[in-house]
Amino acid sequence: MTTIPRSPRLLLLSTAVLTVAGVALLGVPHGQEQPAPPSTAYATTDLSSPATVPPAGKPTGGTAPSAAPTASAPSSVGSALPPHGEGVAGDPAVQRNLEAAWPADLPSKDERVLLTAGRSLLRADATGVGRAQWPEVFGDSGQAVAPAFATARFRIQAAIARRDGSPDKAVVHLVWAGMDRGGNFTDLRITDWFSTRTIKKGKATWTPQPRT
């Protein structure tokens, strides 16, 4: 199942990024084969069936978004996305673009905790590695699950953690590359992981939301 963005603001931002990416691709020499369009995978959808929105700005995929307004998206994109297939060399540009499109709004300590968890969750979800660490998200870790993506060809290109409409709600927005079971390698995929914060005995803990 493909998740279609329902926010007009996200649709406008996605259009802007597609335009910027198109300009970047114009620099490719005539006659050179163009790569396939980007694919997008969300945490709450089948990872083998990506959508087609490149990374930029505030996401709305994954679990149901908060009814409260979230961080404001900028009116323009900070930098051009690298061409598809650029490899590891293009990842810093993806990270800069993501940070420019959605400025930081969390304490640095919370952001570090959320990013560490988000990366681990994405790797576990895509490749099956480390699912036992997240039984509240993946259920019975003893159940055999065929990984959707090859571990050797999986790479997180960029990641940010931001509030999700409330100081006690957050989303980790990740951009990544991977090869699926059919042997198709695609970069600039998008996955969102949502978390809520609870305070027990004076200590705040971020808890990833299970799949619905």
Results as ranks from 00 to 15, higher is better:
residue 75 S to C: 08
residue 75 S to M: 06
residue 75 S to Y: 10
residue 77 V to H: 11
residue 78 G to V: 03
residue 78 G to N: 03
residue 79 S to C: 09
residue 79 S to W: 03
residue 79 S to G: 06
residue 82 P to N: 00
residue 85 G to L: 05
residue 85 G to I: 09
residue 86 E to V: 15
residue 86 E to P: 03
residue 87 G to D: 14
residue 88 V to C: 12
residue 89 A to L: 04
residue 89 A to N: 01
residue 90 G to D: 01
residue 91 D to F: 15
residue 91 D to N: 08
residue 92 P to R: 04
residue 92 P to F: 02
residue 93 A to E: 10
residue 96 R to V: 13
residue 96 R to D: 13
residue 97 N to R: 12
residue 98 L to Y: 00
residue 99 E to D: 06
residue 100 A to K: 05
residue 102 W to G: 09
residue 105 D to L: 00
residue 106 L to F: 05
residue 107 P to L: 05
residue 107 P to Q: 08
residue 108 S to E: 08
residue 108 S to H: 05
residue 109 K to L: 13
residue 110 D to V: 00
residue 110 D to H: 02
residue 113 V to G: 05
residue 115 L to Y: 14
residue 116 T to N: 00
residue 117 A to Q: 13
residue 117 A to I: 00
residue 117 A to V: 11
residue 118 G to S: 05
residue 119 R to F: 13
residue 120 S to W: 04
residue 120 S to I: 07
residue 121 L to F: 09
residue 121 L to Q: 07
residue 124 A to Q: 05
residue 124 A to I: 07
residue 125 D to V: 13
residue 125 D to G: 11
residue 126 A to T: 00
residue 127 T to H: 02
residue 128 G to R: 02
residue 129 V to E: 14
residue 130 G to Q: 13
residue 132 A to K: 12
residue 132 A to F: 14
residue 134 W to C: 00
residue 136 E to P: 05
residue 137 V to S: 03
residue 137 V to R: 04
residue 138 F to E: 12
residue 139 G to W: 11
residue 139 G to M: 12
residue 140 D to C: 03
residue 141 S to G: 07
residue 141 S to V: 10
residue 141 S to M: 14
residue 143 Q to E: 14
residue 144 A to Q: 14
residue 144 A to G: 12
residue 149 F to Q: 04
residue 149 F to L: 07
residue 150 A to Y: 14
residue 152 A to V: 14
residue 153 R to F: 04
residue 153 R to L: 10
residue 156 I to H: 07
residue 156 I to D: 10
residue 157 Q to R: 07
residue 158 A to N: 03
residue 159 A to D: 07
residue 160 I to R: 00
residue 160 I to N: 01
residue 160 I to A: 01
residue 161 A to Q: 07
residue 161 A to I: 06
residue 162 R to D: 12
residue 162 R to Y: 11
residue 163 R to F: 03
residue 166 S to G: 06
residue 168 D to H: 01
residue 168 D to S: 06
residue 170 A to M: 06
residue 170 A to T: 07
residue 171 V to R: 05
residue 172 V to I: 07
residue 174 L to A: 09
residue 174 L to F: 11
residue 175 V to C: 08
residue 176 W to L: 02
residue 176 W to D: 06
residue 176 W to M: 04
residue 178 G to Y: 02
residue 178 G to P: 00
